[in-house]
């Protein structure tokens, strides 16, 4: 790992100033992705700005009917939070399935979405529930936030401060996990609620996407039968040592049916 100057600001303003003032600055939250990247010398920032000492970025609150999760709230906190478990159990379940206990004790929602790994779970959670990303500059609907592989709508010096989730009537997340890392080979979030009918798929493509065919089918009837014939083409899906594009395409149909069955309860 190359050396860098570490900053530990205690306010969002100080963090924004530190990142703005650095010649090549990098934000750090849980470090669960950034530190392994630095160890491999895949990045060489002059400055790293750790958000961990900013109390205002942590925690979960209810606000205007939404559940608002601070950017540096860990996966373990989301998984165990009584409000999230009561209002959006599908989101608590998603957070509880990320990596392993020690990854969940450090990794954060803001870091996960800013990184936008094609196999990450939270992107499906945000798009599938119709969440809104709050940053130091604006509010971005999840549909416009995730742009492509490891690419988001965030500017270089823009910091995610929170994510606001509307409370769905029903929702469920099902993933087929990579047995080694627990990242999603394919993960599907379905929901029905204030944000409409939503089906979001992670792991299968270069970035999370909505499955509109399934959404229309669920508009007719919210049952696993209604989506039984929904398929996706393998063209353009990810293919790697873990799963071919064809296998992923099939997994999308399987996870979709399981998620709808679980949400329909």
């Amino acid at each position: 790992m190359y050396d860098f100057t570490l900053h530990r600001p205690t306010s969002v303003d100080a963090a924004a100033a530190a990142i703005g003032g650095a010649s090549d600055g990098k934000i750090m939250a849980g470090g669960m992705t950034l530190i392994p990247t630095l160890k491999q010398r895949l990045a060489n920032p002059s400055d790293v700005v750790d958000l961990g000492a900013i109390a205002g970025l942590k925690g979960i609150r209810e606000e205007g009917g939404n559940i608002v999760i601070g950017a540096t709230t860990t996966h373990a906190t989301v998984a165990a939070d009584p409000t999230v478990k009561a209002k959006i159990p599908a989101l608590a379940h998603l957070a509880d399935g990320i990596g392993d206990p020690q990854v969940r004790n450090r990794g954060t929602i803001g870091g996960s979405i800013a990184n936008n790994d094609p196999a990450a779970d939270y992107p499906a959670g945000l798009v599938g529930l119709g969440a809104t990303v709050h940053t130091t500059k604006r509010q971005i609907p999840a549909d416009d936030f995730f742009i492509g592989m490891f690419e988001t709508a965030l500017a270089e010096d823009e910091i995610v401060t929170a994510v606001a989730f509307p409370v769905p009537e029903k929702a469920a997340y099902m993933k087929f996990a990579n047995p080694a890392s627990r990242y999603a080979i394919v993960g599907v979030m379905v929901s029905k609620g204030p944000a409409g009918l939503r089906v979001a798929v992670t792991g299968a493509g270069p970035s999370v996407f909505r499955l509109t065919e399934a959404e229309s089918a669920l508009g007719g009837s919210f049952t696993a039968d209604a989506v039984a014939k929904v398929t996706v083409a393998a063209d353009g899906l990810n293919s790697d040592m873990h799963a071919s594009a064809e296998y992923r395409a099939n997994l999308v149909s399987v996870m979709l049916k399981r998620a709808v069955a679980a949400a329909a309860g």
Binding site: L6, R8, G31, M32, I35, G52
Partner: peptide
């Protein structure tokens, strides 16, 4: 794995300064 403020974490994926 060690405990930092009572939680188990991977000490290879945390900076010493973060444990200040």
């Amino acid at each position: 794995v060690v405990h930092v403020d009572g939680e188990s974490v991977k000490s290879c994926t945390m900076l010493a300064l973060q444990a200040d």
